[in-house]
């Protein structure tokens, strides 16, 4: 997929973890042969089952882990290769991450001002008054107030801490943000503020976002294209509309059937579709691979499944 239309290209990325020894040896293929591209200023949503490897994908791209296989290009530059100070700087200048766990990721001994302003200092900014001003601006942007600057993380609620993490990521104006469940811990009204905020930033700064989340209504609302992951594999990629109107992979269907709606009447009658790989696929004779079933709509499937999906699309057209 050496395609210059993408700012981020992930090709056949693998991240396998091993633990234990001998009989207890366990290899988790957290990310297995994952390929996708993200266009500049686009929001690419990544959804999927808990433990399917979304966080690991994000963390591997930003090199919190060294990939065990595959290639990652950012603006055409290889960022999956051997780590050196130059590459580290390139990464921190270009890609920032907002973490899933707002508690784990904030240093409890630092004030909010120090936490949010840290990235500016790392980049050589010295003027304390200027840093303070930018921090306060950021606090307001994410729905907090100036007085919060001198407080410590433990004095904040879960949602407030996540907004601090977002402020810390965007204050350094990166080109791309990997947002790992950035709004999961927020109540809907603040979630709306943050999503509007990320949307504004996207326009203002031409920000590219890899948006990892499990709340599909949020992902659908926020993303241009969506990738669905299952057990280390990417199983379907499409734009939001197509994915919702025409889900093809049985896991995507199961996922869509499980979105709870804010409606007590429909919720009490909810019928979920289960995904059972052993029942839903027969890969005994044919191997699945990622195929473009219709323009811009990729599914991980075998040749006979592909034929079936094409029929389904024709029938729905």
């Amino acid at each position: 997929m050496a395609d210059s239309q993408y700012i981020l290209e992930v090709n056949n990325l693998c991240q396998h973890f091993s633990s234990g020894r001998g009989k207890k040896q366990l290899t988790v293929k957290a990310v297995d042969d994952v390929t996708f591209g993200v266009r500049p200023a686009e929001t690419f949503g990544l959804v999927g089952e808990s433990g399917c490897g979304k966080t690991t994908t994000g963390r591997t791209i930003i090199r919190l882990y060294n990939p065990t296989g595959g290639e990652v290009l950012f603006n055409g530059r290889d960022i999956a290769g051997k780590m050196n100070p130059d590459l580290r700087k390139y990464l921190t200048d270009n890609i920032a991450m907002i973490f899933q766990d707002p508690i784990e990721s904030l240093n409890p001994k630092m004030t909010i001002e120090e936490i949010i302003g840290e990235g500016l200092k790392v980049r050589g900014m010295k003027d304390q008054a200027e840093i303070r001003k930018m921090v306060v601006d950021m606090l307001r942007k994410v729905g907090l107030v100036e007085e919060h600057a001198t407080r410590y993380p433990h004095e904040f609620s879960g949602g407030q801490r996540q907004r601090i993490g977002i402020a810390r990521a965007i204050i350094v104006k990166p080109k791309m943000i990997i947002a790992d469940e950035p709004v999961s811990a927020l109540d809907v009204s603040v979630q709306a503020q943050v999503i509007n905020l990320l949307n504004d930033l996207k326009e203002e700064m031409g920000l590219t976002i890899l948006f990892i989340a499990h709340n599909l209504s949020v992902v659908k609302y926020f993303s241009d294209r969506i990738g669905v992951m299952y057990f280390g594999h990417l199983v379907e990629v499409a734009n939001g509309e197509d994915l919702y109107k025409n889900p093809l992979h049985p896991y995507t269907k199961a996922l869509l059937s499980a979105i709870p709606e804010p409606n007590p009447i429909t919720e009490r009658q909810r019928v979920r579709i289960d995904y059972v790989p052993a029942r839903d696929h027969d890969y005994s004779n044919e191997q699945p691979s990622m195929v473009e079933v219709e323009p811009e709509h990729f599914v991980y499937c075998s040749p006979s499944e592909l034929a079936k999906y094409r029929e389904q699309i024709a029938a729905n057209a």
Binding site: E147, V188, S189, Q191, A192, N196, S217, V218, Y221
Partner: peptide, 25 residues
């Protein structure tokens, strides 16, 4: 009302109705 209005709706991409202002001190 504000809470129910600020939910993302599967059917639109309209700007979300965030509640204005900040939580009280």
């Amino acid at each position: 009302w504000a809470l129910l209005s600020s939910m993302p709706d599967l059917h639109t991409k309209d700007r979300l109705d965030a509640i204005p202002g900040t939580p009280p001190n």
